[in-house]
Design a protein around this nucleic acid. Sequence first.
DNA 1: CATGTGAGTGACTGTACAGTCACTGCGCGG
DNA 2: CCGCGCAGTGACTGTACAGTCACTCACATG
Lengths: 182, 182
Amino acid sequence: MPSLSTAQMRVPVVTASAVEEFARGGFHGTTVADVARAARISPAYVFKLFPSKERLFVAALDDCFRQIVETLGVAADGAAGGPPDGILDAMGGAYAELIADRSLLMLQVHAQSVADIPEVGQALRAGLATVVRLAKTRSGASDEAVQRFVAVGQLCHLIVTSGIEDVPDEWASILTAGIRHP
Amino acid sequence: MPSLSTAQMRVPVVTASAVEEFARGGFHGTTVADVARAARISPAYVFKLFPSKERLFVAALDDCFRQIVETLGVAADGAAGGPPDGILDAMGGAYAELIADRSLLMLQVHAQSVADIPEVGQALRAGLATVVRLAKTRSGASDEAVQRFVAVGQLCHLIVTSGIEDVPDEWASILTAGIRHP
DNA sequence: CATGTGAGTGACTGTACAGTCACTGCGCGG
DNA sequence: CCGCGCAGTGACTGTACAGTCACTCACATG
């Protein structure tokens, strides 16, 4: 065993496992035992670190948006000084790269699916608000461009979840045209 | 009791109940008993009409896309002869009206969430293919316009699922600008 | 060594759900 | 009037899961 760990140090590890596992199975399709196994601890201890399955899911979702915001911020820094649409484009590229492993993307989709759980809906709106505000203020682009930015992101989610990335048909290529998927 | 009914006549009724119930709770959050109750039959009989919960869900999803395609087709008929973007616009308006009750919208989101179930992913792709092909051939619009049409639809799903329709903040109005929600 | 504290768990409970099966009642042809 | 087939169900099974609780163990301090 590499090093000691207090409960506070365990929390981020468990949260990371929760992101991974909930991304795989969604809220109802993932058990607390799944997360516990991925984090190499007992299910009982998960409930010592998080008061309920809902709160665990929310922690995962918060972490998901935290990563996204951080990545978008770095991309905005890199393109700062350029034209607004260039900055948005850089952010879009960074986002595409970030969600290449599908976890952060799937977690968002699963969150939409259980957004009627109040705490989840709240966390979803909070994350979305941060992203939209970030895109707007850091790029300085028009409202329409920011809206399009988010819409394309959602299209991206659809492409990945429905697995049409490698469908060779005409209709599929209409949807995937110009969308980055590394 | 109004009229007699054979098993074949029950199927569409149960399917309609399945749309409603699965739209409410998603695949894992809805029990077969929920659907049975909504359809006023016993859970056991649902399994006589559908071989498994998965197949029941797929039947609901197919019905969802059937309604969408039908609605979009009628809208395209109504706007036929006009400019391509006008036809797409008419289809968009009809879609917005159709999903006003949220059932068909939520069911699609839930389907994305469990698209890793092979039968569900398949049904999702099939429905999507039909919609895209319909939008393209009936409107005659450019590939980019059709892609934008779908992207806006997905943005619409995000707006509804995350419940930002009546969030008064700046960021929310950026996302909802110009989107029809009756 | 005695003892206190917090990390971590095994074992349990109550509940809920997918799917099954033997059964009932009814309409209809003979 | 009889019996056959089909609509429809009650009751059951096995399993799985969220959450709890009493417990152990490692360590630190006096």
